[in-house]
């Protein structure tokens, strides 16, 4: 059956409806709770095993030793000296990252944390090289 202007009723209905789109930068976009966003880093948990560096499909992560290392804990009398726990930094290149969160999965100590940040665009490329300490 041929019916000219078949959408007419739908179109008129929409005259009295709220738009489905939103003025994005002024209105916050809604994000699902488990969205894979920027990866955050918790230096106190990292053991520097480099698993994430090897797993990363886009070579976005570097785990260098921190420049400032914490001092070794004070030696307790009668016990052998405890070596200082090494501290690691994380350099996350957000322009390389594909947000697959594979690093979060392989991390044995849960030092990498998935966040829901998604507004990461920047005009300066240097800003995309995040250095977490």
């Amino acid at each position: 059956m041929i019916h000219p202007a078949r959408v007419f009723r739908e179109v008129i209905k929409h005259l009295f409806r709220k738009p489905a789109t939103c003025a994005y930068p002024f209105e916050k976009a809604k994000i699902m709770p488990d969205f894979r966003g920027r990866i955050d880093f918790d230096s106190s948990k990292c053991i520097g095993c480099q698993m994430c560096v090897r797993a990363c499909p886009s070579k976005a992560i570097e785990i260098p030793l921190s420049k400032v290392q914490p001092p070794a804990p004070a030696q307790i009398e009668g016990q052998p000296p405890v070596p200082a726990k090494k501290k690691f930094d994380c350099i996350m290149k957000l322009d390389h990252c594909v947000y697959c969160a594979q690093c979060v999965e392989v991390c044995p100590k849960k030092a990498l944390i998935m966040t829901q940040d998604f507004e990461l665009a920047h005009v300066d490329r240097k800003e995309l090289r995040r250095h977490y300490t």
């Binding site: 699902m32 947000y99 969160a101």
Partner: peptide, 19 residues
Amino acid sequence: REQVLDCLEMLSGNRVHYS
């Protein structure tokens, strides 16, 4: 289509690259 993209985002964490 946003409805099905919402489904995918809810289940997998991303709208297009579900991984």
